[in-house]
């Protein structure tokens, strides 16, 4: 029982950065913007998040620094793709490379510095309930925040007028524009939201996971977040399933190895990707109806006056 609880705790921690980053990217893509720079924005968030906390001692300041760093990077992307109508794929890739380089430069000052990790919630009686207590009431703030975030995003996209307009921009920017909606401004805001989320997700790594900064420490998690959005067919509910499934399989495969069940480790390492893709694709197949891909995703929009 204790082992099961320990595994669930590890899974929640491993899934949270993916969920936060993917939530932001989902909103961005729903507005019709494909920002492949998630990895770059995440690693910037990691560098600036650790820097902020290291300088001030406050986890919240660190998290904010990470969000601002991600947002600033997304502004560069927005300037290029929305302002200058540059190709989004190329710009996003460049943003990742830029972010990795710049984060190394920023992080050089505090490579090897340690901080105290984000405290975990502790409510005297509920947290101490055996099995389940720590899972429900003993997480760090980011875990609760990530769940609140995805609920809020789902509500926003499907229950508010602004969310409907945002989706309209992603599905048909010409019509949205013709109806008088400021397509570029909406996309700008969605891109900035995506940047802030990616930055926060990156900051989660040094603030709550491994309390130090090393260049390249996101190790490809931004790309996984991007893939999750696609395989979740741009639906928030499935994104949660995808992120937790990925986290769960990646932790379970480690436990399976430790227990020595004899399946080649190379296959086990591939398992999280395989399992997530298969489950999410199966879910999409089961659902009747049209594609949920934002129809204008990745296409440049230049408003004619």
């Amino acid at each position: 029982m204790e082992l099961v609880e320990a595994i669930i705790l590890s899974v929640l921690a491993a899934s949270t950065p993916l969920l936060i980053a993917a939530t932001g990217e989902l909103v961005t893509e729903r507005s019709g913007v494909l920002n492949l720079g998630v990895e770059g924005m995440m690693i910037m968030g990691a560098a600036c998040g650790l820097g902020g906390t290291w300088l001030t001692g406050s986890i919240i300041v660190g998290a904010l620094c990470g969000m601002i760093a991600g947002m600033l990077l997304s502004l560069i992307f927005a300037t290029m793709t929305l302002g200058l109508a540059v190709n989004q794929v190329a710009t996003g890739l460049a943003l990742t490379i830029f972010g990795i380089g710049l984060s190394g430069l920023i992080g050089a000052g505090f490579v090897g510095e340690r901080i105290a990790t984000a405290p975990h919630l502790h409510l005297p009686s509920p947290t101490d309930v055996p099995f389940g207590g720590r899972i429900l009431f003993g997480q760090d703030g980011f875990v609760y925040l990530s769940l609140a975030l995805i609920v809020a995003v789902r509500w926003f996209l499907y229950r508010t007028r602004a969310g409907l307009v945002l989706r309209a921009c992603g599905d048909n920017h010409v019509s949205a524009h013709a109806l008088g909606y400021p397509v570029l401004r909406i996309r700008l805001l969605a891109t900035m939201f995506g940047g802030a989320c990616a930055g926060l997700a990156g900051a989660y790594l040094p603030l709550a996971y491994t309390p130090f900064f090393i260049p390249g420490m996101t190790a490809g998690r931004g790309w996984i977040a991007l893939a999750l959005v696609v395989f979740a067919s741009w639906l928030p509910g499935r994104l949660v399933i995808g992120a937790y499934l990925f986290g769960a399989v990646s932790i379970l495969q480690l436990h399976a190895q430790g227990a020595g069940i004899g399946i080649p480790s190379q296959f086990m390492s591939a398992l999280p990707y395989l399992a997530t893709v298969i489950v999410l694709v199966a879910l999409s197949r089961a659902r009747s109806g049209g594609s949920t891909t934002p129809a204008s995703l990745g296409t440049v929009f230049v408003p004619d006056r």
């Binding site: 790594l205 480690l254 436990h255 480790s265 390492s269």
Partner: peptide
């Protein structure tokens, strides 16, 4: 000895997860 392969030279969060798994299993 319990052995976990990270299949990576450098992935700090994954290395941390592997260490957690080993400790949770009694190492």
């Amino acid at each position: 000895v319990k052995i976990i392969w990270a299949n990576s030279w450098f992935d700090p969060p994954k290395e941390a997860d592997a260490a957690k798994a080993l400790i949770d299993q009694g190492a």
